[in-house]
Computed example of a mutant assay.
Amino acid sequence: MQPIFETERLLLRPFELTDASKVQELAGDIEVAKTTLSIPYPYPDGAAESWISGCKERSQEGVGFTYAIVSKDNHSLIGCMSINVSKSHKRGELAYWLGKPFWGHGYATEAARRLVAFGFKELDLNKVWAAAMTKNPASSNVMKKVGMKLEGQFQQHILKWNEFEDLVFYGLTKRDYTDSIL
Results as ranks from 00 to 15, higher is better:
Met1Val: 06
Met1Pro: 07
Gln2Asp: 08
Ile4Pro: 05
Phe5Met: 03
Thr7Arg: 05
Glu8Ser: 04
Arg9Phe: 01
Leu10Lys: 01
Leu10Ser: 04
Leu12Arg: 07
Pro14Leu: 05
Pro14Met: 05
Phe15Leu: 04
Glu16Gly: 11
Thr18Leu: 05
Ser21Phe: 12
Lys22Arg: 06
Gln24Met: 15
Leu26Arg: 12
Leu26Gly: 08
Ala33Pro: 11
Ala33Met: 07
Lys34Asn: 13
Thr36Glu: 11
Thr36Lys: 05
Ser38Asp: 11
Ile39Gly: 11
Ile39Met: 02
Ile39Pro: 03
Pro40Gln: 12
Pro40Lys: 13
Tyr41His: 15
Tyr43Ala: 03
Gly46Asn: 01
Gly46Arg: 06
Glu49Cys: 10
Ser50Lys: 13
Glu57Val: 12
Arg58His: 15
Val63Asn: 13
Phe65Ala: 05
Phe65Gln: 09
Thr66His: 15
Val70Gly: 04
Asn74Lys: 14
Ser76Lys: 12
Ser76Gln: 13
Gly79Lys: 15
Cys80His: 15
Met81Glu: 10
Lys87Glu: 11
Ser88Glu: 02
His89Phe: 01
Gly92Glu: 00
Gly92Arg: 00
Glu93Phe: 00
Leu94Thr: 11
Ala95Asp: 09
Tyr96Glu: 07
Trp97Pro: 13
Trp97Gln: 11
Gly99Val: 07
Gly99Glu: 06
Lys100Phe: 02
Lys100Tyr: 06
Lys100Cys: 10
Phe102Leu: 06
Trp103Phe: 10
His105Ala: 10
Tyr107Asn: 04
Ala108Trp: 05
Ala112Tyr: 07
Ala112Asn: 04
Arg113Lys: 09
Arg113Met: 03
Arg114Asn: 07
Leu115Gly: 09
Leu115Gln: 13
Val116Ser: 08
Gly119Lys: 04
Phe120Gln: 05
Leu123Tyr: 01
Leu125Ser: 04
Asn126Pro: 01
Asn126Lys: 03
Lys127Met: 04
Lys127Tyr: 09
Val128Pro: 01
Trp129His: 00
Lys135Leu: 02
Lys135Cys: 03
Ser139Glu: 02
Met143Thr: 04
Lys144Thr: 00
Lys144Cys: 00
Val146Gln: 10
Glu151Phe: 10
Glu151His: 04
Gln153Val: 13
Gln153Gly: 06
Phe154His: 01
Phe154Tyr: 13
His157Thr: 07
Ile158Glu: 10
Glu165Ser: 14
Glu165Ala: 13
Asp166Ala: 13
Leu167Gln: 15
Val168Phe: 08
Val168Thr: 15
Phe169Trp: 14
Phe169Met: 14
Lys174His: 14
Asp176Phe: 04
Thr178Arg: 15
Asp179Thr: 08
Ser180Met: 07
